[in-house]
Design a protein around this nucleic acid. Structure first.
Lengths: 223, 223
DNA sequence: TAGATTGTTAATCGATTAACAATC
DNA sequence: TAGATTGTTAATCGATTAACAATC
């Protein structure tokens, strides 16, 4: 509208640059892995193309929203045809930075730590546990999954000697913030927290939470 | 506004009744367990009262939203003072129907199933695994946590003979929908799904999803 | 009383949906 | 060409925040 009425002013170009580097809402990023998950299942079923309608049904989201989300990153579809599943999957993997395998550290070698380290789903989706730490002398030196549990006092050094940028916290709630503080001093920039407590971390460090009991308590409201 | 200008019409009363039985948004219900979790930690630290400001800081939500959420269910605070932690916790437990212990079934006795069955966090938060099922002959008869794994063919009967209304699905993605269909024919009305796939269930059955890989893939966007 | 904090209304913000021209 | 489906804009919807009277 504006540029029909006025010549392009410096403000116009500023706006355009701003638009180009616009921040994608976090909530959209969070849906991309769900799209990718559905696309990979379609691909494994031998499907070649899909539509926003079909994909939407697969993830429980409206077709309009699927199209809007995807179009934030480029024009990956074809009018009249839909989306090539393999192509869109590749694009989503590039956008999400999962066109590679990420090494991950696990802190806490209790029940959750063991479960997480053994979980095949991570490996299938691009994550490999390569470091494990605990503060319990009885656990140090034992194995969780494929990796040996190290003394948590060596965590900072071991992390800095590695290229690990992702850590999972599986210690009791009362230690979780302390662990997070220590992680924040390393190059770890993403934390998946299984402890049932909110973590405070510096700008630039991302935290996601997993708390199954919270999900169950949510559903009991409706029972 | 309306009732300043007009006498109270039948529509007014209809509206009032409607307001009284208003449906609380799902997103608000989902925050209540987080409030409760924070309150329980405060209580265990010996604190007696808190404010929307303090509670908000504990869960990472604005004070205004905390107040608005809680006020949907009653007037549980005191002006000038804040909220009594014990009292508010009790109210939240009543609202969420977790002023009791819920029996839970786990379907799938693989790595996730074992981890979940052993997880102490459920018991502490009001959930007890009492039934387990798998289709693998090698697993049937073994134990996950405290309970014996039964043949999945006996699932419907065993569930109907129990009072279990909550089930956790921890089978491979390709079997998850089939398990969900079978569960939907029992009195199970809440499903926590660990399989990385969306489930379609009848009206009145609630599903929550746990997929750690999705959370990791979300964060790698920012790395 | 003065200070603090709730409960609630109104304003703002952001996300979702509807609609449709473009085009394969 | 006719039918299908995208990418995008405008309209709608719902959630969050700000503000403040009530009151402890």
């Amino acid at each position: 509208m504006v540029d029909l009425l006025y010549p392009k002013t410096p403000l116009y170009y500023l706006t355009e640059v701003f638009m180009t580097t616009k921040k994608i809402p976090d909530i959209i990023i969070g849906r991309l892995p769900l799209y990718l998950r559905a696309l990979e299942r379609m691909a494994s079923n031998g499907e070649i193309v899909t539509s926003s309608k079909e994909l939407g049904e697969g993830v429980g989201i409206s077709a309009a929203q699927i199209r809007k989300d995807i179009s934030q990153f480029g024009e990956f579809g074809k009018q009249g045809t839909g989306y090539n599943i393999k192509f869109l999957s590749e694009k989503l993997r590039e956008i999400l930075n999962i066109d590679r395998v990420w090494d991950v550290a696990i802190i806490g070698a209790g029940d959750i730590g063991h479960g997480v380290a053994r979980y095949q789903g991570f490996l299938e989706r691009g994550f490999r546990v390569t470091l494990a730490f605990d503060n319990d002398a009885k656990k140090i030196g034992t194995k969780v999954g494929e990796v040996e549990v190290q003394n948590i006092e060596k965590m900072a050094d071991a992390l800095n000697a590695s290229d690990v940028k992702i850590a999972m916290i599986a210690v009791p709630a009362e230690y979780a913030q302390d662990v997070a503080d220590k992680l924040a001093k390393t190059q770890v920039k993403a934390i998946l927290n299984y402890a049932p407590i909110r973590l405070t971390v510096p700008e630039g460090v991302h935290v996601q939470y997993i708390d199954p009991a919270t999900h169950l308590q949510w559903m009991t409201y409706y029972l």
